[in-house]
């Protein structure tokens, strides 16, 4: 059975830390960082990267379009 592994890449400096992506994630991957970016925002990051399924929900709902989504199918 193929397993899908995903990952997101956040444009940290453009993220405004609104957190809209957090409830959008079905596998609770995302949290806001304790650190801040250059604008002082607590940016989104993958707290549980292993749970990401690359569904794109976070990127679709991100108002600032700062999330890119990647996905690979693992045959095992």
């Amino acid at each position: 059975m193929a397993k899908i592994i995903g990952a997101i890449e956040v444009d940290v400096e453009k993220c405004k830390g609104c957190g809209v992506c957090i409830p959008a994630c079905p596998t609770d991957v995302i949290l806001l960082a304790k650190n801040v970016n250059g604008k002082g925002y607590h940016y989104a990051y993958m707290e549980k990267p292993e749970a990401c399924i690359g569904c794109t929900n976070c990127a679709v709902v991100c108002p600032d379009g700062v999330i890119s989504v990647y996905k690979v199918k693992m045959a095992n």
């Binding site: 592994i5 995903g6 990952a7 690359g54 794109t56 990127a59 890119s68 990647y70 690979v72």
Partner: peptide, 10 residues
């Protein structure tokens, strides 16, 4: 995973 060929949304 984060490689151009795996990109599904940007």
């Amino acid at each position: 995973i984060i490689k151009p060929e795996n990109l599904v949304y940007q």
